[in-house]
Amino acid sequence: MNIELPPLVALLFFPGGLFLLSAGTVYEWADRKLVARFQNRIGPRWFQPVADVVKLLAKEEIVPDGVNPVLFHGLPVVALVGTLTAALYVPMAGMAPSYSFTGDLIVTLYLLSLMTLSMGLAGANTLDRFSLIGATRALTQLFSYEAPFLMALLGPAIAAGSWQISHVDAYAQGHWWMVLTQPVGFLVALVGLMGKLELPPFDSPEAETEIVAGPMTEYSGRGWALFRIGRDVELLVGLTLMAAFYLGGLANPIEFVLKTGGLLLVTAALQSLFCRLRIDQTVGMWWRIGILLALAQLFLLAFMR
């Protein structure tokens, strides 16, 4: 599907700004609800994530002593802007990406990493011990999953012969689902996405039973709300990217909802199945298994072509 939108509309309403924010909260709700149902609970009502954000925005923001205030206020904005911008290059809601150029896949991936990077810096910016440990863990985890995740997404790109997301999407629509032809890459990418979003079992950067909220410990009010929305949007963008690459592309909104919803169901199940991994276990797993699998997949693809 392809609709031409005036740039301002694309930026503020669809597929940018307003749509992303509301769809992001909906996906967060769906994620929480699914995990709750997997655990035989009721889970939150549909407006809970919105209510959380509204409440946080209305709260006083406490700036702790000893932080750089510019960074403290700026980092949440950078994180959110990064993810919002990334959304412009993906086939959001089954529509063609608003902006597209050769190599936009790489740009998107880096924009998505901005989130984790900002969180790490935000944690390191404060004097809080929990934040510092959380920041160390967040950045350690970033360096471990980033490479395999990137390689796993390169697989479909190599198959399609283009590093442009819209081209890969179009290629995926016309061929077999790549989850069947490249199952290893799909697995690595899915787990990598969970690592990126710090979902359980990869949530040791913010393991509440050890370091409270990790890098986010000192954040309250607006900053925390922005990080949360940023994370929601990242979830949405990540799922869209995965569905476009591995699940036969996104041709229309219905396919978008079904495919990302299905992926969400799988990630929710994975979230509730495992015990949190220690940071050394996470890193060990990625470097020992994740990257090897991704590399093997990549070499195989290179030979096949």
Partner: peptide, 14 residues
């Protein structure tokens, strides 16, 4: 716990 969670999806929450 795969069995537990997949059964719960089709059960009423407690």
């Amino acid at each position: 716990m795969l069995g537990d969670i997949s059964r719960s999806l089709f059960k009423r929450p407690v």
